Simulated assay, not measured.
Amino acid sequence: MSIASHPIPFWLIVLIFLLALPACAFAGFRFGRFELRRAPALFAADKLPGEASLGALLALLGLLLGFTFSAVLSWREASVSAVVEEAAALGTAFLRADLLPEGTGRPLQAALLDYGRTRIVPTGFRATRESIDAFVSRSTEAQAALWPATMAALTPEVAAPLATYVSGGITEVLDAHTRRVAAASKTITSGIWMLLTFAAGSGVFIIGNRAALQGRRLSWRTLVFSLVLTAVLVTIEDLSRGSDGFTRVPQTPLVAAVADMEAAFEAPALASVSARP
């Protein structure tokens, strides 16, 4: 599985939609004016073409937008749940490691803390392929230390039930990574985006074209429709991005889990210092 990347900045996507859809309406209007001047007899009020095709196209556009919006909303919820589950798994594994003798449990807790820090997506992170590879590389490097630290901590002196309990927490941390990668790998394909963009552009183009063929001006209603359509497309793109849109996958559960782990890890050291004469 590969984490989905977004090479085009989000602000540029918003700007493209804001300009492209009204431009399609204006282009359709200008083309309709040209058709009307060239053959006015063909476009009498009682035989104006395109009404059925426009209705079918807008219905299809609504269907495409509805299914796509539902899919990206489901993916966003899965990404949010994956972050919460990973934070819970890290906290649980850290507490289970505290049951081990301090000489063996502390190195395992340190490895979990180092790994947890690498799992937090920083503010302003943009999911280009280079930044994703760098983030995953740091995380997998810290992850590679978890199982050796677990094996070193589970000495023969550790009771078998406790060893199973601790190792189960570590494997849950590793499984949480897989689930989070699976959630982050889902995105809208370029083919689907081309279909959505073509359908939206065609719809506003025909609306502008029919306005010209009816001898009317390009009204503010067409502009409002194109802006609403832009807002829907931007929202879909926003939900498909986890870190650089208007709404982002919250990292609060991981931040809180790491903060709790840091406080618990430092507490014994502070206690030992205060106990000195």
Rank of each mutant, 00 (worst) to 15 (best):
L227Y: 02
L60M: 01
L58S: 03
S81T: 15
R126V: 15
A160F: 08
A184K: 03
L108G: 06
A44C: 08
A271S: 06
A78T: 09
V72F: 02
F29M: 11
I206K: 07
R221F: 03
A200N: 09
S53C: 01
L15Q: 14
L99G: 10
R119S: 15
G203S: 15
A142I: 14
F10M: 11
V273I: 12
L113Q: 11
E262Y: 02
S274N: 10
I188E: 09
P101Y: 00
I207T: 09
L64M: 03
V258S: 05
S131R: 11
A59G: 04
T252D: 13
S53P: 02
L229S: 07
S2Q: 12
L95A: 10
R217L: 10
S243Q: 11
L42H: 06
A97F: 07
P250V: 12
R117S: 11
V173F: 01
T164Y: 06
A200C: 10
L57K: 01
A27P: 15
V255Y: 10
S190C: 04
A182F: 02
V136H: 02
L73T: 12
D260A: 08
W147T: 15
A97Q: 07
A152N: 08
E77K: 06
T230D: 00
S185A: 14
E102H: 10
A183Y: 02
L146T: 13
E157N: 12
T178S: 11
R248Y: 10
F135G: 00
W193S: 15
S81F: 06
L174F: 03
A160C: 05
A78Y: 03
S226F: 00
T189Q: 08
F34G: 05
L12V: 12
S131T: 13
Y165M: 10
L15E: 14
V273D: 07
I16A: 15
S81P: 00
N209A: 10
L18H: 05
A149F: 03
L239T: 06
V204P: 00
R138C: 09
T178G: 06
W11T: 13
L229W: 07
V273S: 05
F43W: 10
I236D: 08
E172W: 01
L195T: 12
G66D: 07
T68P: 08
T155M: 06
T235P: 02
A263W: 02
A184M: 08
E130Q: 13
A111R: 06
D98V: 01
G105W: 07
W220N: 15
R216H: 11
T171G: 03
P277V: 04
W75L: 05
A87V: 13
P156Y: 04
A163P: 01
E237M: 09
S240L: 02
A149S: 13
S272I: 00
G242F: 03
G105N: 12
G32P: 14
A199Y: 00
I206V: 13
G116P: 15
E35M: 13
T118A: 14
E141P: 00
V83F: 01
